[in-house]
């Protein structure tokens, strides 16, 4: 199938893109990598009258350092995130989670910003962004604003982005030297997460000094496993200590029921995968 007709513009600056979006009104859509939007347009689940392609906006690409933060342009592709030396060093968790997204072809096109803006609860980059205490920088006709990941995700496929706003960049506090692992559970190749756990851990000698745990697909939005994080502080990184802390992983979660799994099974997965994620992070 092919998409319904639309007008197309490909501005070369963020300012022009924001203006085009505002001028076009509610029926306009921003196009990033197109790996979620184009499939939706093809089956005509959406039929925007205007597409604003960010593909030519050079300022939205790339990764840079700004003091104790990394700043990742929203149009940086999954492929670039996987291989970026700054991300490898200061936000390892994001690189490891991105490795598990989709397949190589999709990763060549799909973008970090597009994944966050799309806000699929099974998307693999939301929980890492939340776990790393990332902030998103958003630009609209009224200028720029910043939102924490915790405030940005509002519901299934819903963020605090207003119709005339563009996600410009993601600011990630450096987690230099933190251990990290993303444990994703699915049953077939190139599948979305049934449940996944993003874990990053700072150690002090043999003990766990601090842990940040994000849960994918355990609610309509990504969640932090706060009780696990608290239980890990000061613990030795032993299998027993990790397993005991991971028992708290499903607390406060509200996962959906679908053909893959019911609530109890997803909560079971959250506990098991949290244990595995922390152990794998420590081993890595």
């Amino acid at each position: 199938m092919i998409p319904a007709p639309f007008d197309y513009v490909a501005p070369s600056t963020v300012d022009d893109a924001v203006r085009a979006l505002a001028d076009a009104g509610e029926d306009a859509k921003v196009l990033a990598g197109g790996q979620s939007l184009l499939p939706v347009l093809r089956v005509r689940l959406a039929a925007p009258t205007k597409i604003i392609d960010l593909g030519k906006v050079a300022e939205l690409r790339g990764v840079r350092e700004e003091g104790d933060h990394l700043v990742i342009g929203s149009m940086t592709t999954h492929y670039e995130v996987q291989r970026d030396p700054l991300i490898a060093e200061h936000a390892t968790l994001l690189a490891r989670a991105t490795d598990t997204v989709a397949d190589p072809q999709v990763r060549h096109r799909g973008t970090f910003g597009g994944s966050l803006a799309h806000a699929d609860p099974a998307g693999d980059l939301l929980a890492p962004a939340l776990a790393l205490d990332a902030e998103v920088v958003i630009q609209g006709m009224d200028g720029k604003r910043t939102a924490t990941a915790a405030d940005f995700f509002e519901d299934f496929f819903t963020t605090s982005l207003r119709p005339d706003e563009i996600l410009v960049e993601v600011r990630v506090p450096k987690h230099t030297g933190w251990h990290a692992h993303y444990e994703k559970f699915n049953r077939v190749a190139q599948a979305w997460s049934m449940v996944a756990v993003a874990a990053t851990v700072r150690t002090d000698g043999d003990a766990i000094a601090e842990a940040k745990i994000g849960l994918t697909n355990m609610s309509s939005i990504p969640m932090r496993a706060t009780a696990v994080e608290q239980a890990l502080v000061g613990q030795p990184a032993t299998t027993e200590a990790i397993r005991a802390a991971a028992e708290h992983a499903a607390e406060g979660t509200n996962p959906t029921v679908d053909g893959n799994a019911d609530v109890e099974y997803r909560q079971h997965l959250a506990r098991v995968l949290t244990g595995r994620a922390i152990s794998a992070a420590m081993a890595g």
Binding site: A10, L31, G34, Q35, L38, V43, Y79, Q105, R109
Partner: peptide, 29 residues
């Protein structure tokens, strides 16, 4: 396919593999 899953349509765009059913022709300008 109609779902961007099968990869039968894979081509290289500027040296990298993409699913050509999931790219607009205008994006390849």
């Amino acid at each position: 396919c109609d779902t961007s899953n099968c990869g039968a349509c894979t081509v290289h765009l500027d040296g990298h593999s993409v699913k050509s059913c999931s790219v607009l022709a205008v994006q390849a300008d």
